[in-house]
């Protein structure tokens, strides 16, 4: 799809990069443009993507030590005094350990603090379940006024970082330490709150973000061989959810799969289900993700397979919702026949 400026992942060699790196480039870009930015880290600069920024702009970098709660609180004070603040630590430490400070100080005060969960999802790989963050999106999403973004690749991560600086109120962005496929380019549109249709199709839709977007595009390709047209939508912003695109996908395709590198409880799948269950068009949905359990050690790629997050898993989820859609359509047809008789 040339107009979206996407990489043709089916016919070219796909490059990979950690989205943490896109975060780093976004921060540097902001500082170069003269934004009054302060970047904070809690002793993870080596992996989180802030070490390059630290080298370029040491005066704008603050390592607070292993004090995640104090980091978020200090960020609140800096924001109150007019600074554009980015705080960085592992997703589970940012969204978990510092949750109450994010809630009671940042969100309650509607402060302009950008909270960056690095090494999130399963991307902490070998570190295993205690350090992987599968519930960060869910717990951040419940906070009033919080914007939640999961960029798909390093290119989009850079754009999300720059856009977050201009977004009023708190923003949570999740980044990955593992190398993930680059599928967007500098010209691919990105606006917070606006989902992107990356592949057209009318039989079913896959709503996804993060590394799962690549898997969803591959799944759509697999299903094309079966004669099925699958719409693939990049829902990089989980909150505010692009309800217009979600509703249109429900009305026009009648069967939805959500796919995310996180818990099936309360994340993108939860957001889509909440939106659709309260719409005029109830639609069969299948939520692909990690089901009510912690992660475990392994290579990122191995973990995606292990937890059923690959293109084949998305493809079978699409087949499942399609069969539910057909049985609903069958019921509708029977009901219509009964009414006529």
């Amino acid at each position: 799809m040339a107009e979206m400026g996407l990489v043709d992942i089916h016919h070219s060699v796909v490059e990979t990069e950690a989205t943490n790196r896109g975060y780093e480039r976004g921060l540097i870009e902001l500082a170069e443009r003269g934004t009054d930015i302060i970047v904070m880290d809690a002793d993870l600069a080596g992996s989180s993507g802030t070490s390059g920024f630290r080298k370029r702009f040491p005066d704008r970098f603050l390592d607070i030590g292993l004090c995640e709660q104090d980091m978020i609180g200090t960020a609140a004070g800096l924001a109150l005094a007019g600074k554009c603040v980015f705080v960085t630590t592992h997703g589970m430490l940012a969204a978990g350990k510092a949750w109450d400070i994010i809630r009671s100080t940042i969100c309650y005060g509607s402060l302009n603090v950008n909270i960056c969960g690095a090494d999130a999802g399963l991307s902490a790989g070998g570190a295993g379940g205690s350090r992987q963050s599968l519930e960060d999106v869910a717990v951040m999403r419940t906070l009033p006024g919080m914007t939640v973004i999961v960029p798909t690749d390093a290119v989009e991560a850079r754009k999300a970082t720059v856009a977050a600086a201009r977004t009023p109120g708190p923003v949570y962005i999740r980044f990955a330490a593992a190398r993930v496929p680059i599928i967007t380019t500098n010209i691919t549109p990105f606006t917070i709150g606006q989902a992107g249709v990356y592949r057209q199709g009318d039989d079913a839709s896959v709503l996804t973000n993060g590394v799962m977007l690549y898997e969803a595009l591959k799944a759509a390709r697999l299903l094309e061989d079966d004669g099925l047209g699958v719409r693939v939508i990049n829902c990089h912003t989980i909150k505010p959810l692009d309800r217009a695109i979600v509703n249109r996908a429900a009305v026009e395709t009648g069967a939805l799969v959500t796919a995310e590198e996180g818990s099936t409880i309360g994340g993108l799948g939860g957001a889509v289900a909440e939106a659709l269950a309260q719409s005029s068009r109830p639609t069969p949905i299948k939520i692909v993700g990690i089901e009510d359990r912690f992660g475990e050690s392994g290579e990122h790629e191995q973990l995606l397979s292990h937890f059923g997050l690959k293109s084949r898993d998305i493809a079978s989820a699409v087949r499942e919702v399609l069969s539910r859609k057909r049985s609903l359509e069958g019921r509708d047809t029977e009901a219509a026949r009964d009414r006529v008789q």
Binding site: L62, Q69, D70, I72, G73, T74, A75, A76, G77, L78, A79, L80, A81, G82, K83, I101, T105
Partner: peptide
């Protein structure tokens, strides 16, 4: 106190 520190740094 964390908030106060942040304001003070700014």
């Amino acid at each position: 106190l964390s908030i106060a520190n942040g304001i003070a740094m700014a």
